[in-house]
Nucleic acid binder design. Structure first.
Lengths: 211, 211
DNA sequence: CCTACCGATCGGTAGG
DNA sequence: CCTACCGATCGGTAGG
């Protein structure tokens, strides 16, 4: 049973989104902030317009519809995480090292994009039908991304052959993805320290599997 | 136009809720199913009435308001998980064994109450203000519940003294709580098997912490 | 980017 | 548990 938060909002909405014109970016950032605070379904287009100080009708100059906002947010998130995953998949070095590096960088992305990481995990149900289909493909991509790396690590002898790859995969990825549920960016722990700790714990699960 | 009473036998959407009159229970089960499918905010009181084959106005004979439905669902979930936690906290035996037993039974509760476990994690934002305050207290209860058990396990020598209790706690509890995000009750894996596997993985994190 | 507006639906209530 | 109804708000559009 996940626990409700004790925490207040991070001061900055989220890490900046590159590659968009500045007003478009402000629109998306306002949506991210509000969707994160109240949920997608409970946030009205009026709320987003208020946040930006414009009339609701004017917002439709920037967006095609409310679901278009969610689509843009999800596409940005997926692109950024996919880039991280591809980089570590294709990197040189032992599979066990690439796995650890991926866990740490993915955790760090979640820690530095708390709102969008949380939204992606929480609000996919409100994506339009075709976007949900795309997200299902992306989900399989992530699941299968780790399998060859873990199998390589087993072939290297770094990981016990009787590791339940699927269970370990879900266990670790769920733990990392849930970081935004508890991490307080204004607290004592730094994002870097948590990312390293989480990568350590993940590798404990991967490499110390009992035979 | 309203449809005629569609009613078939209420297919079981989740494990049964005890201690309520039968019609009250059906109302809550319909709400659980719909909130889980579409989210709380996107589910209208009309949707719940349709599911039960009654007029929207009639539903207010059973509930005080839409948020009352969510309150009842959350209270049931919390009561059940708290009972599990209290039992293992107060049990005899080594702390390390009580921890493992708690992890397994908590995982099993999530596996057999997929919809309510998922709702508690996902929809707490929509709880009324006083209910959210209560949930924050409950959250601290769960966090602090594990600490004495883990400390006892360290005192017993079952667990390394340099285990980062807080990190391990978040890592494990997040992983278990996220089970409803991927588990398919119609798939090949049994709930019992997953619960045992997850308890194994959790104990790997707890007991094999590197020094 | 604003004004003015649309039909649909929202949660909820009175009275039976 | 139903009928009939409420004011408020919803996402979205036309025309500028």
């Amino acid at each position: 049973m996940r626990m409700p938060p004790s925490k207040a909002a991070p001061k900055k909405t989220d890490a900046p989104l590159n590659g968009r014109r500045s007003r478009d970016r402000e629109v998306i950032e306002a949506a991210v902030k509000l969707f994160w605070e109240k949920g997608y379904a409970s946030t009205s287009v009026q709320d987003v317009a208020d946040e930006l100080g414009m009339m609701k009708g004017s917002l439709y100059y920037y967006i095609d519809g409310k679901d278009d906002l969610l689509r843009k947010i999800f596409e940005d998130s997926h692109r950024e995480v996919q880039e991280i995953a591809e980089r570590h998949r294709a990197a040189d070095g032992k599979a066990v090292d690439r796995l650890r590096a991926f866990f740490e960088e993915y955790a760090l992305w979640c820690l530095t994009h708390l709102q969008r990481a949380s939204l992606y995990a929480r609000e996919w149900r409100h994506a339009s039908e075709d976007l949900r289909a795309l997200m299902a493909v992306q989900r399989r991509y992530y699941d299968e991304l780790l399998v060859p790396m873990i199998k390589s690590a087993i072939a290297e002898g770094s990981v016990s052959a009787d590791l339940d790859i699927r269970m370990a995969n879900y266990f670790i990825m769920s733990a990392i993805t849930s970081i935004p549920d508890w991490f307080d960016p204004a607290g004592k722990l730094s994002a870097d320290a948590v990312a390293k700790r989480y990568a350590d714990l993940a590798m404990l699960v991967i490499t110390r599997s009992a035979s």
